[in-house]
């Protein structure tokens, strides 16, 4: 299980992140890497969304074969997800 927080760099951008960064979109973008359920929590006062992702580490940090057993690098990957800000 990992958690990844998507935080607005500039707070004025939070509403669009709140609207566009959905569980469905994240699940599609991260694909096979996340084997389990994704839960989304909004923290409006911080301009942030916290995603909790189950079965993301191939067995958890203590027994994972992954080079990055903690899943720390997944946050940088998620930042690459494009969102359409025009509609």
């Amino acid at each position: 299980m990992v958690n990844i927080s998507v935080i607005a760099f500039d707070e004025k951008d939070y509403p669009i992140i709140q609207k566009k960064v959905t569980v469905e979109k994240v699940k599609l973008f991260l694909g096979e890497t996340i084997q389990g359920e994704i839960i989304r929590y909004e923290v409006t006062t911080l301009g942030a969304i916290n995603f909790v992702m189950h079965k993301a580490l191939r067995g958890g940090v203590t027994r994972s074969l992954r080079l990055d057993k903690h899943g720390k690098t997944l946050s940088s990957i998620l930042l690459e997800m494009p969102i359409n800000t025009n509609d």
Binding site: I7, I39, L46
Partner: peptide, 16 residues
């Protein structure tokens, strides 16, 4: 505030 936000949500499930 930005460094604190990231740490606040580090290794957290339900923030409430």
């Amino acid at each position: 505030p930005a460094t604190c936000k990231e740490q606040l949500l580090y290794e957290v499930h339900d923030p409430s």
